[in-house]
Design a protein around this nucleic acid. Sequence first.
DNA 1: GTTCTTGCAAATGTTTTGCAGCCCG
DNA 2: CGGGCTGCAAAACATTTGCAAGAAC
Lengths: 132, 132
Amino acid sequence: MTMVRNTRQRQAVVLALRETPTHPDAAWIHTQVRRALPNISLGTVYRTLDALVRDGVVMTIERAGQATRYDYKHAGLGHHHVVCRGCGAIYDIDAEDVQMPATGLPEGFQVQDVRLEYHGVCEDCAAGEKRG
Amino acid sequence: MTMVRNTRQRQAVVLALRETPTHPDAAWIHTQVRRALPNISLGTVYRTLDALVRDGVVMTIERAGQATRYDYKHAGLGHHHVVCRGCGAIYDIDAEDVQMPATGLPEGFQVQDVRLEYHGVCEDCAAGEKRG
DNA sequence: GTTCTTGCAAATGTTTTGCAGCCCG
DNA sequence: CGGGCTGCAAAACATTTGCAAGAAC
């Protein structure tokens, strides 16, 4: 029987995620958590984040070639993301309306996470593109 | 003024994407395209795919630490994705019902791509987890 | 005490980039 | 012809992993 241990490292990572309103990546979390645990390694941060994702406590926003961003999942409140292709900024959208678990799922597929993402360019980046 | 050139490499990449019903990664596309253009480099494949994504012809499905998958966008037909966390398999879901361009977008944000993804585990992987 | 976790560092794998020469338009 | 494109190979990064020592329970 697997047993998840409540280590100081795990507590610190959860705390850091809860306390930021942003959607940080693993390196940012590492820097942050080091203030309390100076020796914590980046590897541990990754392992902890993976565990939190598996537990469904944290969700990810992933972009090719760029660090994965982590988002502490506020229970019950469905919220989705707006991602700027230019600067990588991520905004939240509150969406009380949940989207239907579409018919047409493969036989026996168990959905753990529904992601709705709007990708595009933010106002500043759009201006930059015109200029540059 | 930027000028997009219609090179043989670009044609071959588009062709490869159009002809497969799967959602391949850059390496697979590279292998495929080499049959017609033996000297094409992986770098060129990446550069071409980036251009196609910018043009809105191709969309991506991204997963941390794993190769980005590319999906030729069938015009007009809104289709979304089911992603298995276990084996990485990607399935399509046809969705005639488009999802609302949510209110609450940041001021001036220009949406280029709406992604709806169902992440979870497929039947086989779920069985494997129980066993292993 | 047992077993899961950590730190460290090296390895892995993907994606990007510099540059000289090539080709499209 | 000129400027974008390409091939090549070498980075640059993000993420994973092996292992011995440490910490939970």
